[in-house]
Structure formats: C-alpha cells, structure tokens
Design a binder for these strands. Structure first.
Length: 269
DNA sequence: ATGGCTTGAGTGTCAAGA
C-alpha cells in the first residue's frame, strides 16, 4: 500500500494541486496537515469526485489535519485522548488492519518560549498515547509534519541551525523517544540522496538553492517497516506556482498477501 | 539585519509559520 503525508499550508489554496497529485500518484492514503479550515469548509465533494473519502479534524485559520483514503475506514480518532488541547493536530483511522495517524506537531517558535514548552509537552502526550495505539494495532504508520529535523544530515546548514528551533537537543530527544524501540523512520530504511529535505522557506529562493530541512516523516511499526519497499520525498509539487513550502513524503509498503510474490521474485534474482 | 515570503482574517496590518 502507498502511504503519503503532505503539509499543504492551506487546503483551500492547494486543493487543485492535491487533486492533481492524487490522480498522478493514487496513494491508498494521503495525510494532510495545516488544512486551515473548519470541517464545514472542507472540500469533501471535490475529493470524492477524485475517488477519495476523507476524515478531517478541522480548525479555522490554523492547524487542521486530515486523512484522505480510498477504502472504508473504521475507528476514527480525533485529538490525543485525555490531553487537553484546543489545537487540531491529530487524526487517526484504521484501513483494514492498518492504523494510520496523521500529526501536525507544534512548531515551538523559539527554544525556551511558552510554545516550545507546549511542543515538548505535546510530544510527551503523543508518545504515551502511541504506546496504546501500537499495542492495539501492530500494523501502524505515524505520518506528518513533526517539526523536528532528527539529525544534522537533515539540515542544510547545521551550524546556522545549531540548537535552534526544529533542531535543538530536547526536540531531537523527544523525537527519538517517540520512535522508541518500535518505530522506524521509513526514509532512513533506504539509501537516499545527500541533502534530502522536505521543507524550504519561501524566502531567499531557498528551494532553488536547496536550503531546507527534513521535518516531514513517515514512521513505521516493525510489521510495516519489514514490508516497506521505498520511501521518497516528492519535490515536484514544490516547483509549481503557489506551492506549499512542504513537499509530500511517500512510502510504499508491500501488502501482507503479496509478500510471498515479492519473496519469490527476490529469490529468482 | 529578526527581515526576507505566504496564509488567513478582513480592508489595517498583524499573527504565525519553520
């Protein structure tokens, strides 16, 4: 199954790009962040015409997360249970026996700020809840904008970003704690080009100069990581007119019933 | 150089993003 995540920085502005991208890529599910719209303004009809159902956890102006999916979903969860939070940053659902969680982690603004403290508390709450989710659904993928560049190789200029927001040691430790022993960063399961990023500032021609950060991730439980065939960042939408500042990340995971076929093909090679 | 773009809200210009 093909799973993807994309911070669209306003779904209203990016809807034509999202529909084009769905047509070109046909993922089983696409997680969206920063839809920036209430549920009432969500384009359910346009997406249905494109062949996708949607579950949305909406908020006017800020935040807002969704999962677009082709097959029927069950067990839709909005927000982190038992964590008081006005901001709409989490939605989860199940497709068959596979659990998908779409997250938009707080930015944090500046190391040491109130928003930074909120970010770290938010990470702790997500980590605690994910443990429960993993216990219930061994086939789990956590996708989204984590607002953390996990390592210096995920940063175009590690010196300039040293201990700054998105790169500070507490944020990286919170990200590592979220992965724990169970989740794998799908992108790093494979050899990747150097200087691979998923976000580039709109200013200073940062995309053209490839001055970016890798902050959008797909994290896979062992059951899914074992069957993951590829994980790539799709830079094509970032080159369009009026792009999101983030690029989609896409993982391809072999379905359990196709494992035998894949192993057979491998053994013949 | 704490700004440079972009969005939403709303019609001024600011908050927020990362």
């Amino acid at each position: 199954m093909k799973l993807a995540t994309w911070n669209v920085n306003s779904l209203k502005v990016r809807l034509p790009q999202v529909i084009d991208w769905l047509a070109a890529n046909r993922p089983d599910a696409l997680c969206l962040q920063e839809t920036k719209t209430a549920d009432a303004g969500f384009p359910f009809a346009e997406l249905e015409a494109a062949g996708y159902r949607a579950a949305h956890n909406g908020q006017k102006t800020y935040n807002g997360v969704a999962i677009l999916h082709r097959d029927e979903a069950t067990d839709i969860t909005r927000d982190i249970p038992r964590f008081a939070d006005e901001q709409k940053r989490v939605i989860a659902l199940t497709l068959g026996d596979t659990r998908l969680v779409s997250v938009y982690v707080p930015n944090g603004q500046e190391v040491g700020s109130d928003k930074y403290a909120y970010k770290l508390a938010w990470f702790a709450a997500l980590t605690a809840w994910l443990g429960e989710e993993l216990a219930r659904w061994p086939r789990l993928a956590l996708l989204g904008d984590f607002n953390v560049a996990p390592e210096d190789r995920d940063v175009h200029d590690p010196g300039a970003w040293h201990e700054r927001i998105l790169c500070s040691t507490p944020e990286r430790e919170a990200f590592r704690a979220l992965l724990g022993p169970g989740l794998a960063d799908a992108f790093r399961l494979f050899e990747q080009p150097e200087k691979s990023y998923s976000w580039w500032d709109y200013r200073n021609m940062d995309f053209r100069r490839n001055r970016g950060l890798r902050i959008d991730h797909i994290l896979l439980s062992p059951a899914l990581a074992a069957d993951c065939r590829s994980c790539v960042i799709d830079k094509a939408p970032r080159k369009l007119e009026r792009p999101s500042d983030h690029a989609p990340v896409v993982a391809d995971i072999a379905r359990p019933d196709s494992r035998g076929t894949r192993a057979g093909a491998k053994s013949q090679a």
